[in-house]
Write a protein that binds this DNA or RNA. Structure first.
Ligand code: MN
Ligand code: MN
Ligand code: ZN
Ligand code: ZN
Lengths: 142, 142
DNA sequence: ACACAAAAATGGAATTATTCTAATTCCAAA
DNA sequence: TTTGGAATTAGAATAATTCCATTTTTGTGT
């Protein structure tokens, strides 16, 4: 984790009155390290390589703190376990039904604007979620 | 339930080799009757007014059959219990965080097209899900 | 009508992601 | 260095959904 990320973590936590504990730092580091939308179980496995005694409850606590601070996005597709994503830019998710992989799809501000403006009068969105299901060709099987 | 709906139910079920049982018919009728995106528990309550002995397992079985036949859409928002919607036209969902109500948001084919075309080369979507969270003004508190 | 087989419904147990609880440990400030 | 609140922990609890074994219903052929 670089200095900017560490700085961002500390200030975002502080702004909510939370402390940058070893566990929170390591969970955040882990999510930044591999942008593949892991779920809590997978994050537990990865974090335990550095903090072998961390518990699943703590992983959930840390994830909740990071989400509440806006450092991480919680991604819910269908009814599968929540996944976590460090990409804070407006983007959609694409789940390939052949590989099971989740891909980030960057969203053009134009498209975002057209989405928001498609809301009828009287509706004010403060957030949206967009996901696709489909298949990817061989190039995206990374 | 009108004749067209009953016809659609029977043919959609038949096309999957399923039978239009009393339970399936009643669950479908219930979902058509009030387009408020009920979950399985709420559907159980409503269906029991006509079929007092139906079980929750059967409601889930029926919902699965109806979804598999394409007669009903399963709507998952965050990690709350699945909701069910008879609106088969392309539409998004809007959850009002003041009232908790779910609203259908019709989607202009232009916007749908711009969504699909925002996918990078190599990604082919066969489906998408779009939901908003926000607030509605008094007019939409129906 | 009757018998049979397949499909469906049923109740309850099992599963599983997540949250809760109560006990312990950590840590920043006094 | 004490200490009080914050955080972590293990395990129990919760709740939506699925599974399983049994019973009921239904369609078909006699
Ligand atoms: Mn939270
Ligand atoms: Mn299904
Ligand atoms: Zn993402
Ligand atoms: Zn709907």
């Amino acid at each position: 984790m670089n200095d900017k990320d560490r700085k961002g973590l500390h200030s975002a936590l502080k702004s909510k009155g939370l402390r940058p504990t070893r566990q929170r730092t390591c969970v955040y580091e882990t999510i930044l390290g591999k942008k593949d939308h892991p779920n809590a179980d997978e994050i537990l496995l990865r974090v335990r390589r550095n903090l072998p005694t961390i518990s699943l409850a703590t992983v959930y606590n840390c994830l909740d703190a990071l989400v509440d601070c806006g450092l991480v996005r919680q991604v819910n597709l269908d009814r599968s376990p929540s996944r976590f994503c460090p990409n804070l830019t407006p983007h959609a998710h694409f789940k390939c039904n052949r590989t099971g992989k989740i891909h980030d799809i960057p969203m053009d501000p134009k498209v975002v604007a057209s989405l928001e403006s498609s809301l009828p009068k009287g509706f004010t969105a403060e957030n949206f979620d967009l996901s696709f299901i489909g298949s990817t060709d061989k190039k995206n099987h990374s």
